[in-house]
């Protein structure tokens, strides 16, 4: 690393990206570990909720996994816009690298939600706006992954996938506002709402730490997967050069 500040568009150069991101990985890994560890310690030291009892602890992983799943999709759609508009291969690599990670976080949001819904609502699943739109998020991720493997022409695959990712981003505000638009068992906005959070600080802290921790974990794995793809591309180019 040089001492010079790095302009964001310089990072679009794969070589530059690799040089700059290499020292970030261990720090990001350390920050992720510390945050999640602290979050878990707090999560199991909060008193049970007066209504929900100990099931409130599921919130500390349910809300962060669901939030990370949505943020990951937002980033994937953003990278897709750059891929489509600027035709930059690194943006396409970044979008593709995010998809399987986002899919796992989405599945975890659904599973932990189900394990919370059963004791609190008496149902593993209900077809309401929030749950259905969140299931659609999983299907969007899976569709994206399937589509990215379906073309032999990489440029075309990148274009079609980018369009799917961008169109699918319409689902993000639907998930967000579903609890206001339709009747639901799901609780409404309780954190980022007018008048401040409707949750006691005792629960807010572990929730906040776990949300930061899962966000960092996503960013760490995303970075590793983008780096992997760049290395693979370099290997491919060398092999092609060797055969011609």
């Amino acid at each position: 690393m040089t001492g010079k500040p790095v302009h964001i568009f310089e990072l679009a150069n794969p070589k530059r990206f690799m040089d700059v991101s290499a020292p970030v990985v261990p720090w990001l890994a350390a920050a992720t570990t510390v945050t999640i560890t602290l979050g878990l310690i707090l999560a199991f030291n909060t008193p049970p909720d007066y209504q929900q009892g100990d099931t409130v602890r599921i919130m500390f992983i349910h809300v962060p996994t669901a939030w990370t799943a949505m943020m990951a999709y937002g980033l994937m759609a953003l990278a897709s816009v750059v891929s489509l508009v600027n035709r930059h291969p690194l943006a396409d690599v970044a979008a593709k690298a995010a998809a399987p990670l986002g899919a796992v976080f989405t599945a975890l949001g659904l599973i932990t939600g189900s394990l919370w819904g059963r004791p609190m609502w008496g149902a593993w699943w209900v077809w309401d706006g929030r749950l259905t739109s969140f299931l659609l998020l999983l299907l969007l991720y899976l569709g994206y992954i399937a589509l990215s493997d379906a073309f032999s022409d990489e440029t075309r695959a990148a274009r079609v996938c980018a369009i799917l990712a961008i169109v699918g981003a319409v689902n993000l505000p639907i998930i967000e506002f579903s609890v206001q638009w339709w009747t639901t068992l799901h609780q409404g906005e309780s954190i980022l709402r007018r008048g401040g959070p409707a949750i006691s600080p005792v629960f807010l802290w572990p929730l906040f730490l776990m949300a930061i921790g899962f966000t960092l974990l996503f960013l760490l794995l995303w970075l590793i997967r983008i780096r992997t793809a760049v290395l693979k591309r370099r290997t491919w180019n060398l092999m092609l050069r060797a055969t011609t």
Binding site: G53, D54, R57, I58, L115, R118, P119
Partner: peptide
């Protein structure tokens, strides 16, 4: 977990 071990 206050009886909720099977979920938590």
């Amino acid at each position: 977990q206050g009886g909720y071990a099977g979920y938590v």
